[in-house]
Amino acid sequence: MMTESKEIKLIDEEGRRVDGRRPDELRPIRIEAGVLEKSDGSAYIEVGRTKIFAAVFGPREVHPKHLELPDRAVLNCRYHMASFSVDERKPLGMTRREIELSKVLREALETVVFLEEFPRTMIDVFVEVIQADGGTRTAGITAASLALADAGIPMSDLIAATAVGKVAGTLVLDINDIEDKYGEADMPVAMTPRRNSIVLLQLNGRMTSEELKKALEMASQGIKKIYQLQIEALKKRYSVVSLEE
């Protein structure tokens, strides 16, 4: 891995990244709410070449019944990638990585949903990655929280997320697949901007504590921009409903 990172120039002489971005620049982002008809709420997100659908079902009766909780809804989350979403075809079925990400996504979403309003029910969130080019868990949770809001599930806030990486010694916002593969660190961060709090945080790789502080600041700046795009997407979804003639 170390030899490979020398071959690929992750930051050029002018401080630009492999895809021409500045270190603190997000990739082009497209967010849409209400894209699938048969779910109760849905969203689609593109972050660069990363493409993800999210859909929400419920609150519905809990199956199997013994999983139901007397005082709140059960939130289920499945993060899953299409076989062709990655460079090497992914075998069918859930990998350990997908199982872990499903868990951290669920725990992040639980912080904003008012689950106590729907005791003895279940809310399902499905995140389907159709193309993975870095930042799928953060784009996935951004879409998932939008799908929950689209479903009319009561929640305290939307969740917006991005990852900060370290490549060739430089901190970079919203890392892509190549930067993730050949860089030194990848730190996905999801936040509830309303409370200025982190709801998902992971780190793969090494950073100094100074770098970590700076990386969090960069993530928080990026998240603010993504949050605005989410709000616009949700408002646009409903303005179509109320103004279309």
Partner: peptide, 9 residues
């Protein structure tokens, strides 16, 4: 009253 609000607003 005529403008849509979103969670957290």
């Amino acid at each position: 009253e005529k403008e849509i609000v979103v969670p957290g607003q």
